[in-house]
């Protein structure tokens, strides 16, 4: 199921073979393997099982095998398609912003300027802020239509303040999440840029390569591995963005900012529909794999080049 992911990880981490020696150390490995096996299999099997059951916590009379009805109900629900679209948009949008911006900022903060060490620390700071705090921070202090700093700024330049979360809920959530993950990309990519051989850059400059050519032919190829790592780690987290939505919009207005994670949560813990929520869970797992496979193909090509 996770084959495609595995392939990239192999491409990213080329493990040099060590001399094989007598093992017998399996006993050290097994506790971790067993506990992860339990963790990865039992909930998965249970989710699959529940997804074919009529199971609602508030209606004990409704019981028994449901066939595919939970899936049919979910897949024909417009809310579900909307949530699916939002999930994909959120992942792709934040990836584009954080990787694109991350590369540019990594190059910027590799340059020598006054106080660059402090500037770097400031830039990576949002990564350490917990999601619930950053969501509330943006919702109230920054974007509040009356008291927010951004609203005050818009009034100051003669514009009408916008209630961002009400009118552009998904874009605003995307922006908040990007604010959290751009610093992560900068942190990783900056380290990669710094590991680039200065001699090489210098040589290219001597040969008459302009800044853009140097960026395109020397820096960018050098960064491809680090970019792959950033995309993979971020995708893991972005597929399941939850707190930012729960705290700012609760998925609304309507389902305008509901992603799969939030939809399943509201089905399971707010509507007590265990069967339906489990069907959603199974679909989320399948989608995670499709997106992973899709991403990985693009990334793998980049790695070979």
């Amino acid at each position: 199921m996770f084959r495609s992911w595995s392939l990239t990880m192999e491409a990213v981490i080329a493990t040099p073979e060590r001399v094989k020696r007598k093992s017998g150390a399996g006993v050290f490995l097994s506790p971790a393997v067993i506990i992860l096996l339990i963790w990865s299999l039992i909930p998965l099997v249970l989710t699959l099982w529940y997804s074919f059951q009529n199971y609602n916590l508030v209606d004990p009379t409704l019981k028994g095998f449901a066939g595919f009805s939970n899936y049919v109900y979910l897949l024909t629900d417009p809310d579900f398609l909307y949530a699916l679209l939002n999930t994909v948009l959120l992942v792709l949008g934040v990836l584009v912003i954080s990787v694109g911006g991350g590369v540019l900022l990594a190059v910027l903060y590799d340059q020598d300027f006054f106080g660059r060490g402090i500037a770097r620390v400031l830039v990576i700071s949002p990564f350490f802020v917990m999601p619930t705090v950053s969501a509330l921070l943006w919702k109230n202090l920054m974007l509040h239509p009356i008291y927010g700093v951004y609203s005050a700024f818009m009034r100051a330049i003669g514009l009408q303040p916008i209630d961002w979360l009400a009118h552009y809920p998904m874009q605003t959530v995307m922006m908040i999440v990007a604010w959290e993950w751009l610093p992560f990309a900068v942190l990783i990519l900056l380290t990669a840029v710094q590991s680039l051989d200065h001699e090489q850059k210098e040589a290219a400059r001597m040969d008459g390569a302009g800044p853009i050519a140097r960026f395109r032919y020397i820096i960018l190829p050098h960064l491809s591995r680090a970019i792959t790592v950033v995309i993979m780690i971020e995708t893991i987290y972005l597929l399941t963005v939850f707190a930012e939505i729960s705290v700012t919009t609760s998925g609304g207005p309507g389902v305008a900012s509901t992603n799969l994670a939030f939809l399943i949560y509201s089905r399971a813990l707010l509507q007590f529909d265990i069967g339906g929520a489990s069907a959603g869970g199974v679909i989320a797992i399948i989608i995670a794999n499709i997106i992973a496979a899709f991403l990985v193909r693009a990334v793998a090509r980049n790695l070979e080049a």
Binding site: S40, P43, I264, G281
Partner: peptide, 25 residues
């Protein structure tokens, strides 16, 4: 190598996918 990759793959399981059983357990 297979074990390592498999371990990482368990991290890629979306938590929402297993929210219901974990909650019930």
């Amino acid at each position: 190598r297979g074990t390592l990759l498999w371990m990482l793959s368990t991290r890629m399981l979306p938590p929402v996918g297993v929210l219901v059983p974990v909650y019930l357990i």
